[in-house]
Simulated scan of single mutants.
Amino acid sequence: MTAIPTVFGDGIIDVHVASGVARITLGVQTSASAAIKDGKPEPSAMVVVPVLQLPNLARVLADVTRQIEARAKEVAAGQAATQSNQGQASQNQSNQGQPQDQVAGAFRFNG
């Protein structure tokens, strides 16, 4: 398997569509760009997608966004329940001062 380049983008700077191809310019915000370019992000990469594939790309990104929101709600509900349980436990016994373990969640979406 060949290595593929990994790029980072804080957001989208520009989208240009011509000849059936969408060119999406990703941008990254750095301390240098904030100081020098009035806070405008610098281009970091360009994603080139056939226009006919844009609906599929948008669908997958929307699905991933929904999954992230659902996971965030699950984590928030779990933390609220844990805090509630800890509050009840501290009323029943003395607080031992142990911090709550937090696990960062990660998942893969295969659409």
Rank of each mutant, 00 (worst) to 15 (best):
A3H: 05
A81S: 12
M46V: 03
A3T: 10
A76Y: 07
G9L: 00
V60S: 13
I12N: 03
G87S: 11
I12R: 08
V7C: 01
A3N: 12
L54I: 06
M46L: 03
D10F: 02
A58P: 03
I4D: 10
S33L: 01
A70E: 15
R23V: 11
N56A: 13
V60I: 14
M1K: 08
E69C: 06
D14M: 06
S90A: 15
Q29P: 00
V75I: 13
V75S: 07
L61F: 07
V47I: 15
V17E: 09
Q98T: 14
V15I: 15
A45G: 04
S31D: 15
A62I: 08
V7N: 05
A77D: 09
Q96K: 07
A106H: 10
A18N: 02
I24H: 01
H16P: 00
G20V: 08
R23K: 14
V51Q: 12
V21Y: 04
Q29N: 05
I4N: 09
P43Y: 01
T2H: 02
P50C: 04
G111E: 14
V21R: 06
E42S: 05
K73T: 12
T25C: 03
G105Y: 09
A104Q: 05
Q79G: 03
T65Y: 03
R108E: 13
A77I: 11
F107Q: 12
A35W: 00
Q98H: 14
V17F: 05
V17K: 07
Q98E: 11
V64L: 04
A35Q: 05
M46E: 01
T25R: 01
P99N: 05
G111Q: 08
N110D: 09
T25V: 06
S33R: 00
A35R: 11
G87V: 08
K73G: 10
N56S: 14
V21S: 14
S94Y: 11
K40C: 04
G87Q: 14
Q29C: 02
G97K: 05
M46Y: 01
I68M: 13
I36F: 10
N56G: 12
V7G: 03
R71K: 07
A18F: 06
A80Y: 02
V48A: 14
A89G: 11
A18T: 02
N85T: 04
A81P: 00
G97P: 06
G39Y: 04
L26N: 04
S19Q: 13
A62W: 04
D63I: 14
V64T: 03
S19L: 08
K73V: 10
E74D: 15
I68Y: 09
F109V: 08
A80P: 02
D38G: 09
K37V: 07
A35T: 11
A80I: 03
I24D: 00
P41D: 03
Q79H: 10
